[in-house]
């Protein structure tokens, strides 16, 4: 899986409410990388993911997953939507939400078996949520809800993951648990694209960065791409650079 091109995007553009929000998007993703998609509000980060996954119509361009079409590669692709995109008052519990990640594998007209249930329990355990399996989802904290979403992505056993702001509004402990899981996925040769909003942690968390503002400003290894110039180009100079040039930091994820 490693070093093979798992996602290739060419000349992609998309519009939202009659405005062009993405244009000339072009990049290739190699297997076994952990990529942060970074850009200001309204840069089209979520729209990019939705357009790649054919949930939002694209105007031009082509997208290839594992050298083939999205339809054929669907089973190898996992998606974690924004936590706020679903109604957490829905009458269901944590285990059931994780099980939903398996519905594609279970297939039409079949019910989840004991094997599927065990798989879902294992994923919850991995995210440290086994004690909350029977908890109604509205009774979970924001961080716990996000961990349930991540557990749901894990049971899909995909090779390529798209995650929309998995670290938004979560507690420090959850952030550590999630990053730990993402690094594990990477170690196992999986590829993860993460929409990320916290510039302070980009260097610690991701080995590749995709700077996005309506189009790709720059993309590549974090050390090369994540520079002051590129960031101010992406954020249009509105952002004051807060980070010290050199600092001694304790990495939040070991």
């Amino acid at each position: 899986m490693e070093d093979e091109v798992v996602l290739s995007v060419e000349n992609l553009s998309a519009s939202y409410r009659k405005n062009i929000v993405l244009h000339d998007i072009q990049f290739n993703v190699r297997g076994g990388t952990l990529i942060g998609i970074v850009g200001p509000n309204g840069a089209g980060k979520s729209t990019l993911i939705k357009t790649l996954l054919e949930m939002h119509p694209r105007l031009t361009g082509s997208v290839q997953f594992f050298g083939t079409s999205f339809k054929k590669a669907k089973k190898k692709i996992g998606y974690v939507p924004q936590r706020g995109s679903v109604d957490w008052d829905f009458p269901t519990n944590a285990l059931d939400v994780v099980m939903m990640g398996l519905y594609g594998q279970i297939g039409w007209l079949k019910r989840p078996s004991r094997k599927h249930k065990r798989k879902a329990c294992e994923a919850l355990e991995k995210m440290g949520m086994e004690a909350y399996a029977d908890r109604q989802i509205s009774q979970l904290s924001g961080g716990q809800q996000q961990r349930v979403f991540l557990a749901r992505a894990l049971v899909q056993e995909a090779d390529l993951y798209f995650m929309d702001e998995p670290l938004a509004g979560v507690d420090a402990q959850t952030e550590r648990a999630i990053m730990q899981t993402l690094k594990e996925l990477k170690t196992n040769g999986k590829t993860v694209l993460v929409v990320h909003h916290d510039l302070q942690t980009v260097e610690d968390y991701f080995d590749h960065v995709l700077l996005l503002n309506r189009t790709v400003i720059d993309y590549g290894p974090t050390a090369r791409v994540f520079t002051k110039e590129n960031i101010s180009k992406t954020y249009g100079g509105q952002l004051r650079w807060m980070k010290e040039e050199s600092r001694h930091v304790v990495h939040s994820v070991e």
Partner: peptide, 11 residues
């Protein structure tokens, strides 16, 4: 509950 996930699973 989650039409986006449903769509990505091919439903």
């Amino acid at each position: 509950f989650d039409p986006a996930l449903a769509a990505s699973l091919g439903i």
